[in-house]
Amino acid sequence: MSLKNLLENWSRYRRGHEQGGYHDYEHMWAMVIDLDKCIGCNACSVACYAENNLAVVGEERFARNQAMHWMRIERYWDEPDLERAGKLEHGEYQQYGASFLPMNCQQCNAATCEPVCPVAATYHTPDGLNAQVYNRCIGSRYCSNNCPYRLRFFNFWSYYETSWPKPLDMQLNPDLTVRDKGVMEKCTFCVQRIRAAKDKAAREGRKVRDGEFQTACQQTCPTTAIVFGDLLDPESQVSRMWRYYEVELGKTEQHKRHPERRGYRIMEELNTDPCILFLERVREV
């Protein structure tokens, strides 16, 4: 293989997401998270624990990075943008507060976790979801190794033995499973709620309506920082927002006609083509 070939192949691979996977997506579930609204209160994270049967692992295992928080609020102390703009005058204090970042699976359309799964346990659904088939998963952990966001969580233990002492187990959501040892898991965009809404719409012979259901994190967010919906429905709230903020799926470079408008995807330079659009935090300086 010549160097030219190699580079061409690499270039084609790098832009692969522009062709898309399926060409007949039913839905393209996506989110917008407004970082100027997010106050970092953690309500979304606990709502996710309650909705999705997430195991509590305890202090020891948490220390070994085995926590199962599908939705977590990261907190950063620095302000690279304001620093660059020369807006940080009083370096001895946390002058502009803290920077909170809610991180759940970015549901990448060119997911780095998918091609490495030896058993196709993680794959792309016609809903645009990055799905995890628990029954197929053999626990190779290649996918989490390959996730640049570190948003895949491995069951190192049989948590059902310890996480829900009776009668805590009575709270478990019967709409989805409790995962066993050796299985990878992650945010599903509350696929059980998606399924219920799609089933209901099918029974009534109509399409799923925008806002008909919410993900658990979105539903509880006190500041309405999270918006969720279908990008294939041009009238949906997410579609309007993605359009307004001029971020498009399946594009290697975003050419914004209004570059001053907010809107970016985290580590989009990796060409993972994530389905979560973040809006910049704003600070009066």
Binding site: L35, Y76, W77, D78, P80, L82, A85, I266, F278, R281
Partner: peptide, 16 residues
């Protein structure tokens, strides 16, 4: 990590 190590994780713009 306590800092973003220069990555664009939580981007901030000024109110102006």
């Amino acid at each position: 990590a306590e800092t973003q190590h220069g990555r664009k994780l939580v981007a901030t713009i000024t109110a102006d």
